[in-house]
Design a protein around this nucleic acid. Structure first.
Lengths: 207, 207
DNA sequence: AGGGAATAATTACAAATGTCACGGTGAACT
DNA sequence: AGTTCACCGTGACATTTGTAATTATTCCCT
């Protein structure tokens, strides 16, 4: 028996989803919540197999709640429900470790998707798959947190990653070439790399 | 009733999959093939709801077959079966428009995944989702067509893109360091680049 | 057998790169 | 004022890198 927790702002949506879900005899909706905080509390208490949750909610968003829950329950299976596919949230949801992304209106797909998720798969709509390449491309700046990289150092890193040599970088940043070289040495030390080529590679791999 | 076409090199695998599938009363295996060519022919003739196909096959690979089929039947739902998740193929499969990627050994997940795909979802295992960001980075091997790059040159390019220096590359390829340098000069000339760092960047940007 | 053509090595040289130790700011703190 | 500290620059050095000219080797060709 699959135990599902449903969380959505809109009580009407909760009700209709509950109805749809319980068409499957192997499914029980063990709880219903209406914002992120409730989601966290209910998840802790009920330990459902799957959490079906809206992304946009007052009080606390689905993303925040998901993050909190996955912090405690690393294996949690969380499926997001949304009225439309919202680019910005999708990548975050994926990074967080969500198991999928469903469109509320698409009633038919909810049940089969849940079953697929239940046995360990991830489920995404066509629209999202189509957008994936762009989304991944669009990925934010390289993450240097944890390496203690200063702003100036970052300026240099970016230019190394553009293929500039030290003279060009010095000129662009109004520094002497020597300073650029020294700073680069510091950067390589901080990132445990050997040369500018490895730095450029690091830059493109970490995003 | 879902009509499935199964294509796999290994007859034993075909048989066991067929058995598993027909546990679901709403599923029929309408045909079985053993290589890419058969897949194309059978698909044309049977017009199944879903094509479940191995990626690696003698004669003609699953990828080639999928490409051909999707050319004619743009809406075709194709699911790849594989014994392990093979990075190189995954991105190609995604680009092609495959609906998912299943692990053969994971019997349980096959049936629910099929149903999810049938109603229009895409299904992927956890391992693949985890790798997605890198895969997108990595999408396809860098395209050097039009630049007239030889195999040996490509070997060197790949290693430059891994951050190796000339000595290391020479050692890995059983060449002298001088030869590596000379070849690198040729490569840079061909690609109109200035140094190895720009080459590494080029490598990661063009894919 | 002799004449390319392709591939690998060697050599030499100039330029870029990475590393270090050191000196000179100037701002901030007490 | 004195001190610390972060920042920029310089000079010197070893290494790596990129380029070019030249030679050796092999294979192919007719």
């Amino acid at each position: 028996m699959m135990r599902i927790l449903v969380v959505d702002d809109d009580r009407l949506v909760c009700a209709s989803i509950k109805t749809i879900l319980e068409i499957g005899e192997d499914i029980t909706v063990v709880g219903v919540g209406h914002n992120g905080k409730e989601a966290i509390a209910l998840y802790d208490r009920l330990q459902p197999d799957i959490l079906l949750m809206d992304i946009r909610m007052a009080e606390m968003s689905g993303l925040e709640a998901a993050e909190a829950i996955l912090n405690t329950h690393k294996q949690a299976k969380i499926l997001f429900l949304t009225t439309f596919s919202d680019d910005e949230y999708i990548i975050k949801a994926l990074k967080l470790g969500a198991k999928g992304y469903l469109i509320k209106q698409d009633f038919e797909s909810i049940l089969p998707s849940l079953r697929a998720v239940n046995i360990g798969q991830n489920v995404f709509g066509d629209d999202i798959i189509a957008k994936l390449p762009q989304l991944m491309d669009h990925r934010g700046a390289t993450d240097f947190s944890g390496y203690n990289i200063s702003d100036k150092e970052l300026d240099i890193i970016k230019r190394v990653a553009e293929g500039l040599n030290n003279k060009e970088i010095a000129h662009e940043l109004y520094l002497s070439e020597g300073t650029v070289r020294n700073t680069l040495t510091i950067i390589l030390e901080k990132l445990s790399l050997r040369d500018r080529t490895q730095l450029a590679i690091f830059y493109y791999k970490n995003k």
